[in-house]
Simulated assay, not measured.
Amino acid sequence: MASARDTTVRIRSVGTALPGPAIDNAALGRRMRMAAQWEQWVEAFIGTETRHLSIDLETAKPLFSLADLCETAGRSALAGADLVPEDVDLIVMATASPDMLMPTTANVVADRLHINGVPTYQLQSGCTGAFQALSLAHQLLTTGTYRNALVLGGDVSAKFYDFDVDFAALPPDQLVHYVLFGDGAGAVVLDAEPDPGSAVIRQIFSRLTGLGRGPGQTLDWFGPGDRNADRPPAIEDYKAIEDRVPTMSVEILDELLDDTGWHRDEVDFLLPPQLSGRMTGKIVNLLTLPGAHEVSCVRETGNNGNATPFFQLERVLGQMAPGQRALGISVESSKWIKAGFAVETI
């Protein structure tokens, strides 16, 4: 077992899961009974082309739960790491949309994977939740107490959709929720036994910066006493997000470069925030890393919330050669959290 002083944490494997076929803007627009110019509006202002939903689009009946998706992603990650359930020492999961309040989705997934007798943690968070889960697992592994960790992240946004509403009458802060998001899950196995050619985490952080700021995103819960309340289940303050996320992304990048000592021309891959296709392009231009290859998935998968960084990691780890470096950046608008990581192959 490694000591806390000499522990280097590596990403041993990645697994992901998407529900159902890709749904393009035309199909979504027809289901929402939107006018023909819907597609042009989505492309011009959002920039997302397809997404995967955990419901049947025509009937709105659920087809996949978050536990279903996380189980699939977790199995894939364990297989990629050549681990059996008895090998797992720790589970950390992040989501903004658990299947229920109790039992936690993390424990349901652990049961399905036949993992028992280990610490399990579920973090309630939005887009930066995956970074928070990775950070917590990273810190626990560096204590030398655990050999490995299964880290999960995912969201099922379709549970908040109501296809009986008059979409043409919805205000933008509610309508945009139907366009931005897709459902999915991801998983990684981290361990403290790096091998030559493996990807190691050089830096990772997550920090709340929302003091005195109103939320940019709200997801509500309804109980028996207020399930018929007039307030909407999901709201996006897209203008505030457009204004703040790019600036916060630059601040995260600067902090990662300062912490690692890397120069801008030494970064080979950039994993930018994946709010929407349009926003991602704007942010990448602001970050000014001319030699870095952008690793994005949002145009094809939509914003998958806590699953998104795992889709990006899955793409980039297959491309990284020894000695190459990647930076990941995420901003959570619900209460303005900054998060980032630095990964390097050795």
Rank of each mutant, 00 (worst) to 15 (best):
A27K: 09
L28V: 11
G29V: 06
R30L: 11
R30V: 10
R31W: 07
W38Y: 15
W38D: 04
W38F: 15
E39G: 01
E39F: 03
W41V: 02
W41H: 12
V42P: 01
E43Y: 03
A44R: 14
A44T: 13
F45E: 12
I46D: 00
G47C: 08
T48K: 03
T50P: 07
T50D: 12
T50L: 10
H52F: 06
L53P: 03
L53D: 04
L53S: 09
L57K: 07
L57G: 05
E58Y: 02
E58T: 03
E58G: 09
T59Q: 00
K61F: 07
K61C: 06
P62L: 09
P62M: 11
P62Y: 13
P62C: 05
L63M: 13
F64S: 09
F64M: 08
S65E: 08
S65K: 12
L66R: 10
A67P: 06
D68L: 06
D68N: 14
D68K: 09
C70A: 15
T72G: 07
T72D: 13
T72P: 08
G74N: 12
A77H: 11
A77T: 13
A77Q: 11
A79C: 10
A79G: 14
G80S: 07
D82E: 14
V84T: 14
E86H: 07
D87I: 01
V88F: 04
V88N: 00
D89I: 01
D89K: 01
L90H: 10
I91Q: 01
M93Y: 04
A94Y: 00
T95V: 09
T95M: 02
A96S: 13
S97F: 10
P98W: 07
M100W: 03
M100N: 05
L101G: 09
L101C: 06
M102I: 10
M102P: 01
P103N: 02
P103G: 02
P103T: 01
P103L: 04
P103Y: 06
T104D: 02
T104N: 11
T105Q: 01
T105E: 01
N107Q: 15
A110D: 12
A110I: 05
R112G: 04
R112F: 10
R112K: 15
I115D: 06
I115T: 10
N116F: 03
G117W: 15
P119G: 01
T120E: 00
Q122V: 13
Q122E: 15
Q122G: 07
Q124K: 11
Q124M: 14
S125E: 08
S125Q: 13
S125C: 07
T128E: 05
Q132E: 14
Q132P: 05
A133M: 03
L134F: 10
S135C: 11
L136T: 13
L136D: 13
L136V: 13
H138W: 15
H138L: 05
H138N: 14
L140K: 04
L141C: 07
T142P: 05
T142K: 15
N148W: 03
A149S: 12
A149P: 11
L150I: 06
L152D: 06
G153C: 04
G154I: 12
D155E: 09
V156C: 14
A158Y: 04
K159V: 01
K159T: 04
K159L: 03
K159S: 12
K159W: 03
K159N: 08
F160C: 03
F160L: 12
D162Y: 02
F163R: 05
F163E: 07
D164L: 08
D166A: 10
P171D: 07
